[in-house]
Every structure is written in structure tokens, then in C-alpha cells.
């Protein structure tokens, strides 16, 4: 089975801190990591390869520094890696991103299965997976929490819903986006790290993927950010002080009024 996993480099949420003065994100010393959901997509790809055979190809669209996450993916069991990088991609919204990724996936081969994380933690849109599936003319299932079986080009899987989960069958080739419950990602292996060190990642530019430049980056993006501003700050907060008994009294008052209406 030819499996393609799309991964994105994001700032490590563990390191992201709110600057209390400005109420903006302090990015100082923030590491860049594989989007946490994409880690689970990669792990699922490698597990399916181990069970059903085939290859795992990882693709990332991003700046040249995104090489690092592709190298990490190789060390965790991916076979091939492509970096889709070009200044022409800057400013891409999800529509332009899915176009670019679809061109790159087509260039990288003909996948039987495409895996993505359910969303990226920097943008949180959850739009790229479904959009990419449309471009590739594949059925898709989002928020997959378990792949049960693969038999005769039909996948059986479980999809998270707000009120439980659905069990679905989906025809291959297909695209899945996965949630964290699906697996526990592995650590790299020493052999994988040695392979990753010697592996040459293939870089793809806009020209390499045969892209129509009008559909790329900012120009190919129907949405535009027109302003960026800090969120409203909380009004003055009230400290509830005093003895335990006093604190309990005041708390009871506030909770009762807020819960049942003053």
C-alpha cells in the first residue's frame, strides 16, 4: 500500500507562553515541532505499512526549516520525504494550501491512502484534510480514532462524533484525518536516525509541482486577514481573601448567583 502522510511544522505549544504585559504570544525560545496530530497520522501510516506492507511517504509544505520535521519522520519509520517549499506559497490560506499539497502529492506518487492530523495546532482550522481530499478526488473521513481493518480496498474505521462514534466503511483510495486517541506515536529508532542522517530529502518548488501560480500563496487565497489585534482583556479581577470561612461564604455567593441567576 502506498501511504502518503502530510505533516506540518508548528511552534511547540508546550513552550508557548502568554506575555502577561502585552497579552501576546511570547515566542522566545519556542521550538518548532511536528504538529502533534500529524505525529499520530505518521504513526498510523507506519503501523499500517508494518501490517499490510507498502511504503510511507511524508510531505510537508513550509519554509526550508521544515526539513527538520521530515528528517524526524524518516527516523520514525517513513521511507521517503518531500519538502514543498517556495516563497510563492507564502500567505496561502487553506484553499491555496490544499491546491499546493494536491499538486505535490500527485508528484510524489499515486497514493492508496493519505493521512493527515485532524488539524494543525497553530491554525486550528481542520480544513486542509477535507480540502485536499476534494482536490485528489478521494473520499475522506475526519477525526478517525481507530482503523479496524483493511480488506479488498475497503477500510473499516471509527470516526469520533460529538455524541459518540460512527463505524464507517470507506473505499480506497481515501484520505483520513486522525485524532490522538488512534495510537501512541513511537520514538525515533537508532537505525532510523542513521538513515535520516544520510537521507536526501527531495525539495519541490512551485515549478516542480507544475503549479498554476495564480492559485498559489496570497494570490490564490480567497480569504484575507484584514486586521490583527489582541483579544479583549478581562476586566478587573477580584481577589477573594480572608479566612477559609470568609472565602467559602463569598465563593458560595458568587457561584450561586452566577449559576442560578442573581
Amino acid at each position: 500500500m502506498n501511504i502518503v502522510v502530510c505533516i506540518k511544522q508548528v511552534p511547540d505549544a508546550k513552550d508557548v507562553r502568554l506575555d502577561p504585559e502585552t497579552n501576546t504570544l511570547s515566542r522566545e525560545g519556542v521550538k518548532s515541532v511536528i504538529n502533534p496530530y500529524d505525529r499520530h497520522a505518521l504513526e498510523e501510516g507506519v503501523r499500517l505499512k508494518e501490517e499490510y506492507g507498502g511504503t510511507v511517504t511524508v510531505i510537508s509544505m513550509g519554509p526550508p526549516q521544515a526539513q527538520a520535521i521530515l528528517t524526524e519522520a524518516i527516523s520514525c519509520g517513513a521511507d521517503e520525504a518531500f519538502l514543498v517549499s517556495d516563497r510563492a506559497f507564502a500567505g496561502a490560506d487553506t484553499l491555496a494550501t490544499t491546491y499546493t499539497l494536491a499538486q505535490a502529492v500527485a508528484k510524489a506518487g499515486k497514493p492508496d491512502l493519505v493521512l493527515c492530523g485532524k488539524q494543525a495546532t497553530d491554525g486550528d482550522t481542520a480544513q486542509v484534510g477535507p480540502g485536499l481530499a476534494v482536490r485528489l478526488d478521494m473520499p475522506f473521513v475526519t477525526c478517525v480514532k481507530k482503523v479496524r481493518t483493511i480488506a479488498k480496498d475497503v477500510l473499516t474505521l471509527e470516526r469520533m462524533m460529538d455524541d459518540g462514534y460512527d463505524v464507517l466503511e470507506v473505499d480506497l483510495p481515501a484520505l483520513l484525518t486522525v485524532v490522538k486517541e488512534i495510537n501512541t506515536p513511537r520514538f525515533p529508532s537508532l537505525r532510523g536516525m542513521r538513515r535520516a542522517r544520510d537521507y536526501q530529502i527531495t525539495s519541490l518548488t512551485a515549478e516542480d509541482i507544475g503549479a498554476d501560480s495564480s492559485r498559489l500563496g496570497l494570490g490564490g487565497s480567497p480569504t484575507q486577514v484584514v486586521s490583527v489585534f489582541p483579544p479583549e482583556k478581562k476586566g478587573d479581577r477580584t481577589m477573594i481573601e480572608g479566612s477559609v470561612a470568609e472565602q467559602v461564604d463569598k465563593l458560595a455567593e458568587i457561584l450561586f448567583d452566577s449559576a442560578f441567576g442573581a
Binding site: 513511537r186 520514538f187 529508532s189 537508532l190 532510523g192
Partner: peptide
Amino acid sequence: ETMAKSDFFALFVPEEYGGL
């Protein structure tokens, strides 16, 4: 088992017998 998957048990085995 995590150490095993990450090849740490290969460290003390010679290459001709599947080690590192």
C-alpha cells in the same frame, strides 16, 4: 518495549547478528 523498538537492544549485539 519502547527501548527495543528504538533499537537500544541492538547496541550490545555485533552487526553480523542483527546488532549495531
